[in-house]
């Protein structure tokens, strides 16, 4: 289902459940409203991802301006049974994952979008290029930079100990 895919992307981009749901709704509204403009030149999922990424950019910019701090509250939402998979990780593993998550949040909007679409949505570079309207080379370079940035910061925090 598209909604969960878009939600997954939006959630990772904005890091807030409520906002991610709002973005999903807005994505579908815009898709519905602009249905006549969708010429079928790209896949529908690509089109939805594009709208979602743009909305996430808008949201992040707005949030940056407002400097709003929000707390996460998932308890009131009906998560499916597989949502808690991976919870049984050991503490070290959890710390690493948490650190990586923080580092993803610290990426720039564009790096974040590329990283999420590639790593979590498993999209090809060509698909990401279509969504973000960039060249494949640019997407690859952005992905490389985002990985490098995460690596450097993890190293500074002592999560990664390899020499650079």
């Amino acid at each position: 289902m598209y909604a969960n895919k878009i939600y997954s992307l939006a959630y990772k981009m904005v890091n807030n459940h409520e906002d991610a749901i709002d973005i999903v709704q807005e994505v579908f509204l815009r898709a519905y409203k602009n249905w006549d403009n969708f010429k079928g030149l790209s896949k529908f999922s690509t089109y939805l991802y594009r709208v979602a990424v743009n909305l996430c950019y808008d949201f992040l910019r707005k949030k940056k301006r407002e400097k709003k701090i929000e707390n996460l509250n998932y308890e009131n939402y009906p998560f499916s049974s597989n949502s808690n998979s991976g919870v049984e990780e050991n503490l070290m593993e959890e710390r690493i994952i948490k650190e990586i998550k923080n580092e993803i949040d610290n990426l720039t909007e564009k790096q974040k979008a590329v990283f999420i679409l590639k790593t979590f949505e498993d999209l090809k570079y060509e698909e990401i290029a279509k969504i973000l309207k960039k060249r494949v080379g640019t997407i690859k370079a952005t992905y490389f930079q985002s990985l490098q940035k995460i690596r450097e910061n993890l190293r500074k925090k002592g999560v990664i100990k390899n020499e650079m």
Binding site: H17, S83, V87, I97, I100, I104, F120, L154, I160
Partner: peptide, 14 residues
């Protein structure tokens, strides 16, 4: 990094 990133809590709604 990529292996660990896959372990990031993934929320899926019904």
């Amino acid at each position: 990094i990529l292996e660990k990133a896959k372990g990031i809590h993934h929320l899926e709604l019904k």
